[in-house]
Design a binder for these strands. Structure first.
Length: 425
RNA sequence: GUGAUCGUAGCUCAGUUGGUUAGAGCGCCUGUCUGUGGCACAGGAGGUCGGGGGUUCAAUUCCCCUCGGUCACCCCA
């Protein structure tokens, strides 16, 4: 679309958050931070780029680090990467600062993955997330899942599906992976050839293939549930029990393994059934009992989730929920005299905490009134030559057709506006 | 990275047997309705038809390349 050589646009897969959308974005952010902070989580904000090693721990073989990472070297030749996800960076922060446990934090911000954009997928995308570090109490798993649920409910989503699974501890994971690998190898002829090369290297990845030939094979594959240790099974039972007790509907999906290598025990995903696009996962998370140790910290369990803001809003669009909030302008100054009244009164109103605005450039009354109307303001304060001479202000209630325009002395106008807005005690 | 599809005013889109000054709706600006918005009416600004090359007397319209949007695969939020 660039029309001249010197015009620019946002890079592929990125976009501007324009004022027409930003109020809704802020509102959904407030919903999330409200839910998280009511549950005792505090904000943690980590850098947008890190030593690339932080993210390699996610799993060298995963697409996220293998082929989607924005890697670069800084001017001192240090290998860095733009963060592709939140958990690893938060765990790095934990390992670095060693805060007291339980460490319950939330975060939100941009993440980067070098992928071809499509519906619900961007190169710069945004997530909300929480991490609860320091305990392997299964009730924390329940708490984390319940908070994600709460956010989804709070933005009005009805058509969400929670699926959960358990990966067991690291040991069961290894055992299962072996069993799965040999099963898949035995049946590799039936598997779609697109998936076949993953059998040996990443058998777990084969489980979430969408290809029907592959699915036919994996449907009869050994289930990870059969390999859980009794501790892992107890843990998972407690999680299921907790979700049931909180009235959160869920389905168990033995093939849910998720794309990052660090998961142990509980994994979960919320999908929007209102989204018809290929990407309908709105939130994903799980437990990662070995990750912090991987990052040089003490062995510490943790669990968390990431929620894609763009996808969340897409789901809201699909369900026609969570509309953009309206204007917050309360008062508009219309000054067709010399402009000084508008200048001074907006200042004074704002100092009282009132949202006040005005037009510039000495536009016509008609033009200024139109701006007042469009701003959504309740009240227009009008000052023309007459009012200037009389030291008065005309008050017009823009949202009430019945109301007659009134004239108030200039030195009473602030009090009158407060009264009209119901701000007087 | 692969494939499909699209690319005309700020937005949504018309516009082919290739041929005068490229259109509409919405939005924006100005004005009329005897200083006053939401309605109506009148006028106006705004496009080298994504970019480059080619074919042709002539290309928005045909061909090639390129850039970008969208969707899908892969994978994931």
């Amino acid at each position: 679309m660039s029309k001249k050589a010197n015009t620019f646009r946002t890079p592929i897969g990125t976009r501007d958050l324009m004022p027409s959308d930003s109020a809704r974005w802020e509102a959904v952010t407030n919903v999330f931070t409200g839910v998280a902070s009511r549950a005792g989580f505090s904000l943690v904000d980590t850098p947008i780029f890190e030593d690339i090693g932080v993210f390699s721990r996610i799993g060298e073989g995963t697409d996220v680090v293998g082929k989607e990472m924005y890697e670069f070297r800084d001017r001192s030749d240090r290998p860095m990467a733009l963060r592709p996800e939140g958990t690893a960076a938060v765990c790095r922060a934990f390992a670095q600062h060693r805060p007291a446990v339980p460490w319950k934090v939330y975060y939100r911000g941009p993440y980067f993955r070098y992928e071809a954009p499509q519906a619900g997928r961007f190169r710069q995308f945004h997530q909300f997330g929480i991490e609860s570090i320091g305990s392997d109490d299964p009730d924390i798993d329940v708490e984390v899942i319940a908070l994600a649920w709460e956010v989804l409910r709070s933005v009005g989503l009805q058509r969400v599906l929670l699926i959960v699974n358990s990966m067991g501890d690291q040991n069961t994971r290894i055992l299962y992976q072996e069993a799965l690998r040999s099963y898949l190898l035995d049946n590799s002829n039936e598997i779609d050839e697109q998936d076949r090369d993953k059998v040996a290297s990443h058998p777990l990845r084969v489980l979430d293939s969408k290809r029907s030939a592959t699915q036919a094979v994996t449907n009869d594959a050994p289930k990870i549930g059969e390999y859980l240790s009794s501790e892992a099974e107890q843990h998972f039972d407690r999680v299921k029990d907790g979700l049931g007790s909180l009235g959160i509907p869920f389905a168990i999906e033995p093939k849910l393994v998720r794309g990052l290598d660090y998961y142990t025990h509980t994994t979960f995903e919320f999908q929007s059934s209102a989204l018809e696009t290929a990407q309908n996962t709105v939130c994903g998370g799980g437990r990662y009992n070995g990750l912090i140790e991987e990052l040089g910290g003490p062995p510490t369990p943790g669990i968390g989730f990431g929620m894609g803001i763009e996808r969340l809003l897409l789901a809201c669009d699909a369900e026609e929920s969570f509309p953009a909030p309206g204007s917050d302008t309360q008062v508009w100054l219309v000054d067709v005299a010399d402009g000084r009244s508008a200048r001074d009164l907006t200042h004074q109103l704002r100092n009282l905490g009132i949202v006040a605005d005005r037009a510039f450039d000495g536009r016509s009354m008609r033009s200024q009134m139109r701006s007042a109307d469009r701003s959504g303001a309740e009240i227009a304060l009008i000052i023309g030559e007459q009012e200037l001479a009389d030291q008065t202000v005309a008050i017009r209630m823009l949202r009430d057709e019945e109301a007659a325009q009134t004239i108030v002395p200039r030195d009473e106008i602030l009090r009158e506006v407060e009264r009209l807005l119901g701000l007087d005690s």
